[in-house]
Write a protein that binds this DNA or RNA. Sequence first.
DNA 1: AATTGAACAAATGACCTAAAAGTTCAATTT
DNA 2: AAATTGAACTTTTAGGTCATTTGTTCAATT
Lengths: 213, 213
Amino acid sequence: MAQTAKKDEKQYQLYRDALNLFAEYGYKKTTVADVADRLGMTKGNIYFYVKNKKELYHRTIHWALTQWQDHVRSAVAGQTTAPDRFNAMAEAALGYIEGNKVFRRLLIRDPEIFTLDRDRDRFPEANRAARQIIRDILDQGIREGAFTVRDPEAATEYLFSIYMMFLIQTFVYLDKKDFRRIFASALALNLGGLSSPRPPKETSHDRCHVKGP
Amino acid sequence: MAQTAKKDEKQYQLYRDALNLFAEYGYKKTTVADVADRLGMTKGNIYFYVKNKKELYHRTIHWALTQWQDHVRSAVAGQTTAPDRFNAMAEAALGYIEGNKVFRRLLIRDPEIFTLDRDRDRFPEANRAARQIIRDILDQGIREGAFTVRDPEAATEYLFSIYMMFLIQTFVYLDKKDFRRIFASALALNLGGLSSPRPPKETSHDRCHVKGP
DNA sequence: AATTGAACAAATGACCTAAAAGTTCAATTT
DNA sequence: AAATTGAACTTTTAGGTCATTTGTTCAATT
């Protein structure tokens, strides 16, 4: 049941315009009539595209999350080794929002878009895909011998939580003060751990490859 | 201005009883008269000990946090090496709440006791002390050559956030499902990092001590 | 110093109502 | 047929009133 190209185009406009309005005024203060006005139609016609306001909101945000994820995936694809991909993923994921004012506003209006509570996750599909990006990099690293991970599933869950935590602290709570500095610490810790020894160089590649005692 | 021993004792009772009531009914549903009744006094007399209900609540929780921290500190003191202390701290901090039904109830009634948002932290003093516990272990580990940490202040902040995250996920959101499993992953990752090489043994001590290339 | 109890002040919840916003749909346009 | 309109309809919300509960004060008492 393929949609018409025209409907696809209209839907794109709908999500884009709705996103801007929801980001500016929040869910409650944005009326269906506001969205219709912005698109040059009447509010009744919105219901030709979505079944109600709630669905409009949800689809709009899901669409925004999807765009963001595509950006991350292409950044990851631009690297080859697992550690490089890990860094690229982290940088792309956080950097994208850093540079996206509309998305940041949206998060302030609706801080629960990102949550650490799986039961209250309103975008489980998008977040499953996000976990998969992490998981793929871990698996590659293990396969190629660059990473040592005992329980990849648990590690993925843990890393995803840290990623959520960073998003929430930085873009919801606006604790940006030392964002980059703590982010760097987090990357170093996740790649190398607390434990010595490690040469005091950052570039994460040339590492001691001696087997344990 | 030393208080009388009698007043100290009454204060202890006050906090203990108030804690139980707040945990059972929450802040709103617990009346000042309820607390007074439990202590066998009249509500007017509560105001001899605290200046208002809000202060009673805050002091009560602060007292509970302090007790918890004392427990963690003594668990840490029971170990000697930094990695052992790190593990002991993590286990004591999470384990204490795991076994404390009243505290867990309180968290469900008032989920914002723990927050990732420094601006909304109602117990900054207690949390500063908690960070200090982490920091002291990191410093010891660095001093003794067991840990390699480029920026201890940022690392402390990061580790404290992870600790908060675990508390929130496990005891506020009740995502206990894989708590222990992910907790183990987190400890392993923080001590050893993702990167190979590391012998496939868990006990975190006997590690490769060869200097980098 | 610690406690009481009555008096007073502030906060809450229930109820009401008018306005605003969400939703439907038969008719109309593209 | 797909897309759109606009009026009718339903649901939600914001604001106001009011009785009741709860929080707070304080002069008197132990």
